[in-house]
Design a protein around this nucleic acid. Sequence first.
DNA 1: GCCGTTTTCGGCCCGACTGTTTTCAGTCG
Length: 574
Amino acid sequence: MKNRELADVFSQMADLMEILDEDPFRVASYRKVGRVLEELTDAIEDIAAAGRLETLGGIGKSTAAKIAQFLATGRVQAHQELLGKVPSGVAAMLEIPGLGPKTAAKLWRQGGITTVEQLKIALASPEKLAGVPGMGAKKARQLLESMAFLDRSAGRALLGEASALAESLVQAIEAAKGAQRVVIAGSLRRGKETIGDIDLLCQAPAKAAGGIIQAFTRAPAVRRVLAAGETKGSVTLEGGMQADLRVVDKKSLGAAWMYFTGSKDHNVALRDWALRKKLKLNEYGLFRGRRAVAGASEDEVYAALGLKFIAPELREDRGEIAAAAEGKLPRLLSPKDIRGDMHMHTTASDGRNSLEEMIEACRARGYAYMVIADHSQSQVQARGLDAKRLRQQVQVIRRLAAACKDIWVMTGIEVDIFKDGSLDFPPDVLAELDFVTASPHSALSQDSAGATRRLIRAIEHPCVHCIGHPSGRLLNARPGMELDIQAVAEAAAANRVALEINADPHRLDLRDLHVRAAVEAGATLVINTDSHSVDSLLLMRYGVMTARRGWAEPKDVLNTCTGAELKKWLAKRR
DNA sequence: GCCGTTTTCGGCCCGACTGTTTTCAGTCG
């Protein structure tokens, strides 16, 4: 797959063109191509071979030719020409928050600065930048701090970390005088797998806004105040994340919440939709001329646009607006649809809570069923179970299960899938268990074709019910295997094997786009926490968000079944 | 460079905040 590489080429061309001050609309269209390529689940080679490049939104004749050229020669001529015009270090400056293309161009052309290192030195003695307009002492200090932040932080926070921080900020703002309602917006509300910054909104009368912004900037987690105006505040938090708060009037809350929930691409598409209806949409409301048509609630704004309500998780400009217009949005599942958790560990392998404690915690959550799935023998570092210990555990589970009237406790295993697709236990051992999850844990840098064959072989194994965390990725840590998700999902559908959405915020695997491909291929999903303690059972909500981002409905997800339905599904499988 | 419920040409989302600009450019979301 050359998707990623090619996406980078177009994104970089957009950056370079912007530094060269080329037509902003052409720049925007290159940027869009970068995003489209990045989000593609099919290999760009296959799409090109099928002559379908120009059927992708945002890709026209000229882009198609550049993609073809890249696939044939490994390069895009126009990209090479741009690289020849702008020193590479100048483009690298765009990574620095607060430094955009205009400033990078000025630093280069008028200040003679061509690398980030040179910039750092020059900023330390700002008189060196006297020839560059707009470069005062304050701006210099701000850029130095931004660069220091980049050096320390790995970039984006995980969904779970960001949620906890956001909730602490919400509490601080709610305590401020005049705050009527505080809500989370941004990528956090959309349930994106990683979060760049936290966006919050507070409904309050205009006269209270200043005090609320002050309260926000004094919240315990705040380390530095970046901006504090009349209606907007920006801060850096402990750990380096940025958080923004806007204070809005009651009659604008819906429009503002939509605007700050994004995504940017959804907003652009929605405004375009509004314009075609002779309406104007901004964060204050939906307007016909000067008259406000809607704004207090999101429902009202979507309705006035002739659209069904679009759930935040769908707002990525991936076809949701057309679907909302045609009444074809999916009926998304919600956390309350989940009736069990089918992947959790105990102290028998690397879990922190006992079998009894895990059962009690699942019962307290009101689950109808659960599966114990400890590691198999080759996971030595996790004290994986061999056949003998597994059989002992099965005995204990069966005895405990017999005593549980209100929850169905199933026996299971998380059996390793080896590099060649074979499993860590022979069929006779696996056949004794109620539910078998097979997961890849090692050799995760395998090539795409090999990884796909590996998973398909496991899917075709007669004893396997589910593939756990299929790609093996760890967010912000390792990329995992690059699967041909189409082929994997088709095999899963054909063999009636479920694909896991691992809800652990470090994994979220399958990821959103893979969920969507799996749903379209007719595969069944199962959302599991992979809990290693009773506390992590509540991570389920992040898996549900990821499922929603993949347009999954309850019928696509195995653990929305009742116990009786699940029994039937298991009976058909064997 | 892309695109079409007004269009194959002429549009392309829009507002807040900061810094250093004395009237606004740049960046961000």
